[in-house]
Simulated scan of single mutants.
Amino acid sequence: MYQARIPSRSEYLPIRSYRYHLRRWGPATPGEAPLILLHGWMDVAASWQFVVDALADTALGQRHLVAPDWRGFGLTRSCHANDEHPSHYGDADHYTFADYLADLDLLIARINEGLNRAPDAPVDLVGHSMGGNVAMLYSGIRPQRVRRLVNLEGFGMPASRPSQAPGRYAKWLDALQGLRQGELALKTYADVHGVARRLMKTNPRLPAGHALWLAHHWAAPNAQGQWEILGDPAHKVISAQLYRADETLEIWKRITAPVLAVEATDDSLAQWFKQGEYSLAEYHERLRVVPNHRIEVIQDAGHMLHHDQPQALARLLETFLCQ
């Protein structure tokens, strides 16, 4: 099994009725800006371990790194959750981007205060997928609080039309009913090796040893001995609101931090969406509104590029964040 070079330290912070779990690496030097790592959908903070270990060989090796488990993922749970059940996260029946933004706003303030910094002092953000989307939005809403931003395949979603709203609300209501009836329950596994095989099936590039290490953080055994994914099934409930690309672009226009947009050679958008629905070319066109950005591509990697090529990503982070 993979052996972490720089083990993380766990910490919990009260954030908006949640007991937020954070992983920290590196020395917490008072006054120095932290680098905050934001994971994606159905992932956990421990997912950054391979990149953290790769950063040990760069100029960022002594940087203080912090990665939260988003609400409803990993070890972050509502204050009303039953801690005896690993898959019980509280009473939420859906999650919204507005909540992620509000959580991040307070998290940055608390992390800064713990380092004897002003609550609104600028930090560096790295976000993957959903975490990248949150980071992009946050950087346009609170531009003064972000020094540099790295977006790892946080593409956003296809543009929507107002005529889709009635159907979207209906799908949301149907999904809530399905959640209550247990139709959205996550699959369980007989042992941790089953979880590792699941991770390798999703990402064939993931080495077996890495998958087994990650499985211990991505899932946990329940009272019956079955391994459950550490994610709230309510995350599978579709958003009630349409994705408004026009609103998103207005926010992106207000980003003042330099932005590094990192992509994998595997075209994730081509795999997820029908031809013409949303493409990499359209994403690049959207990025044109971001005042100061550049695009880098990591070779031989898929959407989980921080697992596939952690050393290559670490080199990009070193070049960009040390400027």
Results as ranks from 00 to 15, higher is better:
Y95T: 04
H21R: 10
F50D: 03
A92F: 12
A121K: 06
Q271G: 09
A240Q: 09
L186Y: 09
A67L: 01
P14Y: 05
H293N: 08
P221L: 07
L179A: 09
G31M: 08
I251L: 11
S129F: 03
H210T: 08
L101G: 09
C322T: 15
G225F: 01
R19I: 07
P119C: 07
N203H: 05
S129L: 03
A240W: 07
L305D: 03
G74N: 06
A211I: 06
D43A: 05
Y12P: 06
V237S: 02
T202V: 08
L269F: 05
V146H: 01
V66T: 03
N222D: 15
A240I: 11
A219I: 00
D266S: 14
Y243F: 13
Q275S: 12
R244M: 08
R197Q: 14
L115T: 02
W25N: 05
A121H: 08
P310L: 01
L101M: 09
F97S: 14
L115K: 04
V297I: 14
R24Y: 12
L115P: 00
S78R: 07
A270G: 07
R77K: 15
Q226F: 06
A234N: 01
D120R: 13
P143M: 06
S8R: 05
M304R: 12
D53N: 05
R198N: 09
P291M: 03
I238R: 09
A185D: 10
A159V: 03
G182C: 03
